[in-house]
């Protein structure tokens, strides 16, 4: 791949990016790029667009599974902790009442379930998405400043096996977007 990179003025490149003015155009382009055999790409939009992630080949989302694991950890952890506190660590005999008074532990168990799931979903948004990320190559494209306002971008990354700078730029030009730029890494 190095001989293609050498064609560029940049020492290394992250990919090639095209800008669109509407989410519908981006969606069509994403489908075209995927059916043309590109696999490593990403789309950038100022709001969630339904079906866009699937269009660029994203399949499995593990957020729900992670949050379920968080919830189960919170529930079992919370309940066992309460049992341990009041049955073992600080077992108070109050008029012979049972130490294993589990119904009284349900409210806190419930709160622990919610708390652990909420923290897990925050971690999912951050860690699975690789955030916080102070530097990312896409921000090198000046027009990308509008990706958080009213512009929609499709970026084919240089790690894609089918990526050849000139061919890919030509392909992107043919998608009918506004401007095509090479993204330095």
């Amino acid at each position: 791949m190095s001989e293609h990179v050498a064609l560029q003025e940049f020492s290394s490149i992250h990919g090639a990016m095209v800008e669109f003015s509407s989410p519908d155009d981006l969606m069509i382009a994403a489908h075209q790029a995927y059916s043309s055999g590109y696999r490593r790409m990403d789309a950038y939009t100022p709001m969630p667009i339904e079906g866009l992630a699937e269009a660029i080949g994203y399949k499995k989302n593990y957020v729900a599974l992670a949050v379920l694991i968080g919830a189960l950890t919170g529930a079992t952890g919370g309940f066992c902790f309460l049992e341990w506190i009041s049955g073992v660590a600080y077992a108070l005999n109050v008029g012979g009442r049972p130490l294993n008074s589990w119904p009284a532990f349900i409210p806190i168990t419930f709160e622990c379930t919610i708390l652990f799931s909420a923290i897990t979903s925050l971690l999912c948004v951050l860690l699975m998405n690789g955030l916080p990320k102070p530097y990312h190559p896409v921000f090198n494209v000046p027009a990308f400043a509008r990706a958080s306002t009213d512009r929609f971008f499709l970026c084919i990354e240089s790690t894609d096996p089918k990526f050849r700078v000139e061919e890919t730029v030509d392909f992107l030009r043919g998608l009918g977007g506004n401007e095509v730029s090479v993204v330095p890494a």
């Binding site: 990403d42 969630p48 866009l52 269009a55 660029i56 994203y58 951050l126 998405n129 916080p132 990320k133």
Partner: peptide, 12 residues
């Protein structure tokens, strides 16, 4: 935190 509006990020 470096949010860039990636479609995959939006999905998660």
């Amino acid at each position: 935190l470096g949010w860039r509006g990636s479609a995959i990020h939006w999905h998660r």
